[in-house]
Design a protein around this nucleic acid. Structure first.
Length: 647
RNA sequence: GCCCACGUAGCUCAGCAGGUAGAGCACUUCCUUGGUAAGGAAGAGGUCACCGGUUCAAAUCCGGUCGUGGGCUCCA
């Protein structure tokens, strides 16, 4: 039969192995790094026979995205075999490839130690050295079930039962067998660049009510060089950890005696916060939001009415005042709704956009607290938009635009996800469809890609979630845009329509940065602590050579401050090199060196924290330079909001 | 909340075959007045997270509590 292989027409025997077919068309070097092959949509093992229907065959190399996935998957099996060899009583569960590596879950009656990991890695290397085949058998589900049952592999049996398939593939490297749909690298010798990283607890099938298994994480690459690159990258990322930088740059601290998840902001950290918050206030005003503010505690009755008491109680703190129970707010919506409700609203008043930098408290489980990223007391840049149903779409576009502008300013790539109606939900299908369509249309109209997360919406409405990554590429949710029909109903929010009747407004809950704390945590890692000049708590530091310049340094300080530059002076009895080093480590954007020659020239010698030094400049020029760099990013939304000025 | 690991000076860490603590940086004082990433000397600073147990003796071994880290579940 004639098959097009890697662009060449090749004559192959009927029923030939993929490997044989490929080796006819590929160079030795290419063939050596081929892990599987692709025929149409299907990925095949090299040991598989060429399907009769196959007309084109492409090699998949180890260093391609698909190839890496195969390598990682195969390494997971390899690890499972090593674990079974060393600890025969272990039951294996499941082991997929993940970003940068793989994991495998095991059920064992004692915890794996770091020494165990070393032993497992050594055993894996031994298996690699043996260069065994990854052979594949296809069994009927019943046969496979019997086989795994006989081995006591209960987790595999459960998986087979749940698959509901007639046949399943069984992979083995001689002795060890595993259930998997494949495909895999041809032989264990292909797996030479991996490292086991950690052990963690993980619930069987992600269900916290089921048994907690031991998950071993590892990383795997196509070559030792790639592996090293990744491990180096991990090291680099650790250096950017916002918790380390937060201490080193004196931004914030967390104290055991205060409580987990509670942040104490030091002068520099608090200043960065203030700058970020000011920026947000300006942006919100510019986009037609109104500022509001509510109290931190509201009567418990109100939380019962909103449904939070029933649905969110375990996450709330309560306190008592004069024998009345109060809930400490975990969200800001209640105050905002009561402000809306404080007088009759006309359709002409809508949309109402209430913005608040609202401090909320949530009782997060102790095990999830994480630096600034997951805390118990935080500030949301929260807004609630109350609008007519016909305005919903425009409002969502406005919010999405807002999110995009802000993420662009900070240089974040983000992923978006739209969550649709869950089984347990309230509201009419019509409302849900309309809101979901509005969300999709808004994203489509801006050409923004998104994933659909079926059935993951809030019980009161669908939502868009925006996710950005920290230095270790862990994903954190920041912005979220949620449509809500329930709370306006529960609180009987209305507006008087053109027809004189009362109508129900729709409410959008939305945050842009999400939590100021989390966003700053991500920003610190994103910039490695070197904030852009407009955000830097200290924009410039005056460095003297000897104490004979102290008086002049004071003048420079005064001059720069009057220009609105955040500046300080280092007049300590230290050498210049020492002062430069410190300023550099503190990532201060501009150093203004003053010595006798600068006094004479009535200027400063400017050193930038990265790149070329501007050198000797007059005070005026130096201030201009810093101010130019310090300009607040400014971005116009580019969409026109609908105002109710018709009628 | 669950699994595992860890918890020594403000920070980074050493000490741990059990014999009541040490370095570097930072801090204080003194000397040094020195041009772009660390000048020198001296000093101060720790009930070795906390509580119990084993032992003649515990930072070191064991148990518990709290906290932190990596994950899981959950989430801004």
């Amino acid at each position: 039969m004639q098959v097009e292989i890697a662009g060449q027409a090749v004559e192959v025997l009927e029923g030939a192995k993929c490997a044989d077919a490929l080796s006819q068309a590929l160079s030795k070097k290419q063939f050596k790094k081929t892990v599987v092959c692709r025929c149409g949509d299907a990925l095949l093992d090299l040991s598989a026979s060429l399907p009769e229907t196959c007309t084109t065959l492409e090699p998949v190399f180890a260093d391609s995205e698909e190839g890496l996935d195969v390598v990682r998957h195969s390494t997971a099996h390899l690890m499972a075999e090593a674990v079974k060899n060393l600890f025969p009583e272990v039951k294996v569960a499941i082991g997929p490839s993940i970003e940068n590596g793989f994991y495998y879950d095991f059920d064992y009656d004692r915890p794996f130690t770091p020494e165990d990991l070393e032993a497992i890695e050594a055993e894996m290397n031994r298996l690699v050295g043996a260069d065994k085949d990854f052979s594949c058998r296809v069994l009927s589900s019943a046969e496979a079930r019997k086989e795994f049952k006989g081995q006591g592999e209960d987790y595999k049996v459960e998986l087979i039962d749940d698959l509901g398939a007639e046949t399943v593939s069984i992979y083995g490297q001689g002795g060890f067998t595993d259930l998997c749909r494949g495909p895999h690298v041809p032989r264990t010798g292909f797996l030479h660049s991996f490292k086991l990283l950690s052990v963690a607890g993980a619930y069987w099938r992600g269900d916290e009510k089921r048994k907690q298994l031991q998950r071993i994480y590892g990383t795997a690459w196509s070559s030792p060089k790639e592996l090293k690159k990744y491990l180096d990258r991990l090291e680099e990322a650790k250096k950017r950890d916002h918790r380390k930088l937060g201490t080193r740059l004196d931004l914030f601290s967390i104290h055991e005696e205060v409580g987990g998840g509670m942040i104490l902001w030091h002068p520099k950290g608090a200043l960065v916060r203030a700058i970020l918050e000011d920026f947000e206030r300006k942006e919100h005003l510019r986009r037609g939001y109104d500022f509001v503010q509510g109290p931190l505690i509201l009567k418990r009755d109100l939380w019962e009415r909103s449904g939070h008491y029933d649905n969110y109680r375990e996450n709330m703190y309560f306190t008592e005042v004069d024998e009345t129970s109060y809930g400490i707010k975990p969200m800001n919506c209640l105050s905002h709704m009561l402000i809306y409700k404080s007088r009759i609203r006309s359709y002409r008043d809508l949309p109402q956009r209430y913005f608040e930098l609202g401090v909320v408290h949530r009782h997060e489980k102790s095990g999830v607290l994480h630096g600034l990223m997951r805390v118990r007391s935080f500030t949301q840049d929260d807004a609630h938009i109350l609008c007519r149903p016909d305005q919903l779409q425009d409002e969502i576009v406005g919010v999405v635009n807002f999110v995009k502008d802000i993420m662009d300013i900070f240089g974040f790539e983000f992923e978006a996800e739209i969550s649709t109606r869950p089984e347990k939900s309230i509201g009419s299908d019509e409302d849900w469809d309309r809101a979901t369509d509005s969300l999709k249309n808004a994203m489509d109209s801006m050409g923004m890609p998104y994933d659909i997360n079926e059935g993951d919406g809030a019980f009161y409405g669908p939502k868009i979630d925006i996710v950005i990554k920290d230095a270790l590429e862990r994903k954190w949710q920041c912005a979220t845009i949620q449509c809500d029909f329930t709370l306006p109903e529960r609180f009987d929010l209305v507006y008087v329509g053109e027809d004189g009747d009362r109508h129900r407004p729709v409410m959008i809950h939305r945050v842009i940065l999400g939590s100021i704390e989390r966003f700053l945590g991500i920003l610190i890692e994103h910039y490695s602590g070197a904030f852009p000049v407009w955000l830097a708590p200290v924009q410039a530091r005056v460095l003297t050579i000897t104490d004979s310049q102290n008086e002049y340094a004071g003048k420079v300080l005064q001059f720069m401050r009057e220009k609105g530059i955040r500046v300080e002076a280092d007049i300590r009895n230290e050498k210049l090199g020492y002062k430069v080093r410190e300023a550099q480590l503190e990532k201060i954007p501009y150093m203004l060196v003053v010595g006798d020659s600068e006094i004479e020239a009535k200027g400063v010698n400017v050193r930038w924290r990265d790149g070329d030094d501007p050198g000797l400049l007059s005070l005026e020029k130096a201030a201009e330079l810093i101010l130019a760099g310090a300009q607040e990013p400014f971005k116009l939304g580019g969409i026109s909001y609908s105002f109710s000025t018709t009628a």
